[in-house]
């Protein structure tokens, strides 16, 4: 297959056999209790320089409390997969945690744009779809998947994709390299202590993210029994052996919402939007919501409050489909 064009963006691909060897030895087959505090999960499984991916979005079922903990522990030189991301890339970049971003959608607000303009954050261009397809390739243990997206654009030029002549139809087609994140972060509605997990509603790619990632940290609204899991297995999104840590984090998506459980906190997002274009305000935002509280529980207690929590729960009147 002749390579007709090769993108110049930075990326890495795992050797599929190295990946298999990792999955063979590092992913535990036995069911062991994986529940641990968020600080321990982040300390144990996220290192400086790691590639981090998350699911689903800042507004809905995102692992916001885990992202705040990464910032609290001041990880550095991370590379972040912004496949459907509005605020996390900005928070991580403003906190000095990031070296680079795979861009599906860079994020909202001018601060993150400025960080790229000034060369402080490296980016590789993708699209929401092709970045998610890279996770599927990673989840399948193959080095790439073909796509008809990206073709004939500058997005491709600055991506890591290659255009080849497809050996079957003889037409140009884009190949996107697999991504196997060092860590995947997924917030779920329910899981058991071993990590058998349920996500309700639409979502970007919870299963692909958990399969592709070498380590998967799950935060959950609710911990249920394995008996409950076994009663309705068609509800299981992610099986336990893909999961390395379970963090019990009710309201863990805030300021985003968890479908059917609580609505997003619109007021908070407006406050965030104001901070997302202003360095001073961002420093104050990070201090108020992350550094001045020691953990998610303290964030809920001191920065959100019972009244707001109850109100956001009350607003979640649409329940059908989310259980």
């Amino acid at each position: 297959m002749d390579v007709l064009q090769a993108g110049v963006g930075e990326f890495t691909v795992e050797d599929p056999d190295e990946l298999r060897a990792f999955m063979r030895t590092e992913k535990r087959r036995e069911m062991v209790d994986k529940v641990m505090p968020e600080a321990e999960a982040v300390r144990r499984y996220i290192k400086d320089g790691d590639y981090v991916s998350f699911d689903f979005s800042s507004f809905t079922r995102g692992p916001a409390s885990l992202v705040r903990e990464i910032i609290r522990q001041r990880r550095q030189n991370l590379w972040f997969a912004a496949k459907f991301t509005l605020m996390e890339s900005t928070l991580l970049a403003a906190s000095g945690c990031l070296r680079g971003i795979d861009v599906g959608f860079l994020g909202l607000g001018s601060l993150i744009g400025k960080a790229v303009e000034e060369g402080r954050i490296k980016v590789t261009e993708w699209t929401n779809g092709t970045l998610t397809l890279r996770h599927l390739a990673g989840a399948m243990g193959v080095p790439f998947l073909p796509s008809r997206n990206l073709l004939a654009t500058d997005t491709l030029t600055y991506s890591g994709a290659k255009v080849v002549q497809d050996p079957f139809t003889r037409r140009p087609i884009a190949l996107v390299p697999a991504v196997n994140p060092d860590v995947g972060l997924v917030h779920v509605h329910q899981c058991d202590i071993y990590g058998n997990a349920r996500c309700f509603g639409p979502g970007v790619s919870p299963l692909e993210t958990a399969m592709a990632s070498k380590r998967t940290i799950i935060s959950t609204e609710e911990i249920i029994t394995t008996d409950d899991i076994r009663k309705e297995p068609s509800k299981t999104t992610i099986p336990y052996y893909l999961v390395d840590a379970v963090v019990y984090a009710p309201f863990g998506c805030l300021p985003g919402g968890a479908q059917g459980v609580y609505e997003m906190d619109t007021e908070h997002f407006l406050e965030y939007m104001a901070a997302s274009g202003d360095e001073q305000k961002m420093v104050a935002y990070l201090d108020r919501y992350i550094h001045s509280v020691s953990c998610h529980e303290e964030f809920l207690e001191k920065r959100v409050g019972v009244t707001k929590l109850m109100d956001l729960k009350r607003q979640a009147t649409i329940k059908e489909g989310y259980h």
Partner: peptide
């Protein structure tokens, strides 16, 4: 100059897929 943009925006999101497919 791609490496030093005058102004950086969010990027494709899903736009590339939409206009392609």
């Amino acid at each position: 100059d791609y490496t030093r943009p005058e102004k950086r925006f969010p990027g494709s999101g899903g736009a590339n897929e939409v206009l392609t497919q």
